[in-house]
Design a protein around this nucleic acid. Structure first.
Lengths: 338, 338
DNA sequence: CTGAAAGCGCTAACAT
DNA sequence: ATGTTAGCGCTTTCAG
């Protein structure tokens, strides 16, 4: 591969001029610029990333730590990754992928070796061991999810309090006298992530306000049998006609809908079902499920926006940035009584 | 961050000795090694990645180009990403994520700037513009998927020919006299990926061998309405009792199962359904669907294995490496008649 | 077995 | 507006 020295020689200028043409950090005469750019083009020059990183102390890389493995929502994380990658590219950055199971030491590795300029930590737990490490770093870090103690690190997440409230308000408006939350599954509960509690809190508060009993059924896992058992339990009181179901984990939705259909219960007529999932996912269930939206793309967008501001200048106010979810009525909820 | 010079000073050795302690490329006395390692530990030394890349001409990074955006299977790509990331880590490499829509120029960028030592291209199309570019690079590249002309690049994929055959053989064995393939959806067909053709070829050949009529219904997209329409078409001849359905796109499975249930048709009793999807996905449909497995983890594992062999400079024979799928009978296929 | 020294290909002062 | 030069922090000769 050609180097900037080769370009300089061909253009008949000094090597630093080539560098300045690239960075635009000082004025260059039109003629010089033309010759340099021409030389670059004929040599198909591309600056060496390692050399640039070494000299500039900037890798132009954002580290992204994603949840993987069992417990992680297989479909749910992809929109995040995609949006984050696109935002990064828009700012001339690349994304280095790290899996969450590498834990805090991976965070130290990326930062210590200067492999990235900034970090995005997805899926942060209530008490996440990565946070203390990340907070001690002198590079921008953003959390997706809200831990108990963010240690002054900026966080972005969906407003799960509000999501719970929206779901319950709608079920109440549909006339239901009993609300059951089916999920989160036990592994999610035990992973100790704050959105589980926040959702629960928002939903319960709303139910109390409406004077409607609110119970929660926790499937042992996301498998079919467990969801079936949970559904059975939710339906046990047998006044199904009054039942409003909240399904906070999107991946359980189709199992729930199928389970209801198997029992001759038609969502939207006999019971109501509200799922917490992306609009995208809601539109592909059968029938399309009324949902409170998770907004992975918006969350990612805001996270990256904040991150790049921090990367540009270091004194932004950092706090908790909550994305407002919205409810979309589809086919699985009863019409409102007049 | 401490540098190797700091370590050298503290250990009372030369900087190059520190480097050799890290690389193990020459013998070091036990005492020297001990002192260096102690100094590294007390300074919490981590080698600077940019400097290392510049000097060694090795970034220790694998570039991974993933399909994103509409058209891509939202859930299907994650296991690939995960497995690839883990394999990379096992060999002390990181993964740099690039989205497919950046196309061939992203390939040139990564290679030209020496941002990675090797490349994995996922989801390669029959005539993929990235291939010519990638083949001209002087770094190892592996394709996941098989193009018409691999240009001597090694490929790994599931044996879709065989997958089609397995599905049809099983439906024949179940006694079906009519087989309909529901899918791929039109965008997939038009994206011109070879696995669509290969699957079709394998399935058709098997059907011909069994003397069973084989037709294909192509939904306009992966949405519910389109799948419904396709199902209606598939069921039109109305001798549903004899119908065996093949669903080559896993994401359509639950819509198909729900659609059948809505018509009072019970898979495994009235009709048979075989999906092409991961075993994981097959176990979470309701009822669990008989499937021919896609093996994303095994495909990834083999791809990375080959890639690291190539990186280690062994001039391996490179060709097309097909992973054999296997069929698992679950609840959606009829029992074999005796 | 170890040290000194020459780069790797850039960026960014410091000069004019 | 441009050239000269000193690094950035490593790897890897070359010398002993």
């Amino acid at each position: 591969m050609a180097t900037s020295r080769d370009v300089a020689r061909l253009a008949g200028v000094s090597q630093s001029t080539v560098s300045y043409v690239m960075s635009g950090r000082r004025s260059i005469s039109a003629e010089t610029r033309r010759r340099v750019e021409e030389a670059m083009a004929t040599l198909r020059f591309q600056p060496n990333a390692g050399a640039r990183a070494l000299a500039s102390r900037r890798s132009q890389v954002v580290g992204l730590m994603v949840p993987f493995g069992p417990g992680a929502d297989t479909a749910g994380v992809l929109p995040f990754i995609e949006s984050i990658a696109k935002c990064a590219r828009a700012e001339e950055h690349n994304v280095l992928l790290v899996t969450e199971d590498e834990g805090a030491e991976a965070v130290e590795r990326l930062a210590g070796r200067a492999q990235c300029d900034a970090l995005v930590l997805m899926d942060v737990g209530a008490a996440d061991s990565r946070i203390a490490v990340a907070a001690a770093l002198d590079l921008p870090v953003i959390l997706i999810g809200v831990p108990d103690d963010p240690a002054h690190l900026p966080c972005v997440d969906v407003d799960f309090d509000r999501a719970g409230q929206l779901a319950v308000d709608e079920l109440a408006a549909c006339g239901h006298r009993r609300i059951v939350q089916l999920g989160y599954v036990r592994p999610s509960v035990e992973r100790d992530v704050n959105y589980v509690r926040r959702f629960d809190r928002g939903a319960r508060a709303a139910a109390r306000r409406h004077g409607i009993p609110y119970t929660q059924v926790i499937p042992e896992d996301a498998g079919n049998a467990a969801v079936e058992a949970a559904l059975e339990e939710a339906l046990a009181p047998d006044d199904a006609g009054n039942l409003g179901l909240v399904v906070p984990e999107g991946r359980l939705t189709s199992a729930v809908l199928t389970g209801l259909a198997d029992r001759g219960l038609t969502p939207g007529r006999d019971v109501s079902v509200i799922a917490i999932c992306t609009d995208e996912a809601a539109e592909t269930t059968q029938p399309p499920v009324t949902n409170v939206s998770l907004e992975p793309r918006e969350v990612s967008r805001r996270a990256m926006h904040t991150l790049f501001r921090l990367l540009a200048d270091r004194h932004e106010p950092t706090g908790i940035d909550l994305v407002q979810p919205h409810l979309t009525r589809r086919r699985t909820t009863l019409p409102h009584p007049h």
